[in-house]
Write a protein that binds this DNA or RNA. Structure first.
Lengths: 117, 117
DNA sequence: CGGGATCCGTCTTGATACTG
DNA sequence: CAGTATCAAGACGGATCCCG
């Protein structure tokens, strides 16, 4: 199976290629879009776990984007996909240690947003 | 029946519409893209001031996007556009107080990027 | 029915050419 | 130098479809 191009649906939002050696640039390659950090907010602060939990948040992320971002966050290691039921398969997306390390960043984001936006 | 008039060259990167009352979501509407925070990094940490300064950074932002993001940051109040010469007009983009308040956010971003990406 | 995948039109991006 | 114009490529978003 080819690893790169099979993903399809709506393609990768950010390239895996490093633009530079700068940590800020690299972080932005991963989370520099409108949804990724919102999903992490939901996971970390609002206890969202299932696909529906995330989907029902007030910002209404489209399901295809949600599906893709979840996959990406799992691949990156910020979330872990855990089956909690098998007859109809059901999954939970649980923040890992790496995922939890985004909390300070989200707090700064919230502070900035609350103060200025 | 166009839903929105296409605005010249490259249109608005984020909508002005608030998606929610959440500070995180609002902050992401403003800075949730790959370039905006990079420009602020250049302005705040690398002393970039002129169009060329930003343009010559290693990540090579396309000039149309640079132009648009600078405009947006000026409108938002994070940068101030100041003429420093008038025969051929030349401008500097200088971080405002509001712009400087992004420093903690950028530091978190760098910490995260350095540690995990 | 829940958890996604697929289709498809519209908008954004990114490279580069061009202008004052 | 400081932007603007152009345009192909691709990301977004919404509706719908599919599978267990």
């Amino acid at each position: 199976m080819d690893k790169q191009k099979s993903i399809a649906s709506s393609a990768a939002p950010t390239k895996r290629v490093k633009r530079s050696e700068c940590g800020i640039a690299n972080a932005l390659d991963l989370i520099g879009d409108k949804w990724t950090l919102l999903i992490m907010r939901d996971a970390l602060f609002f206890q969202c776990r299932t696909f529906a939990d995330f989907s029902n948040q007030p910002e209404h992320i489209p399901t295809n984007l949600l599906s893709e971002r979840l996959k990406r966050l799992v691949t990156f290691g910020a979330l872990e996909k855990i089956a909690y039921q098998s007859k109809p398969e059901r999954f939970q997306y649980v923040p890992t240690k790496l995922g939890n390390s985004m909390k300070p960043l989200l707090k700064e984001l919230r502070a900035f947003g609350d103060a200025h936006v």
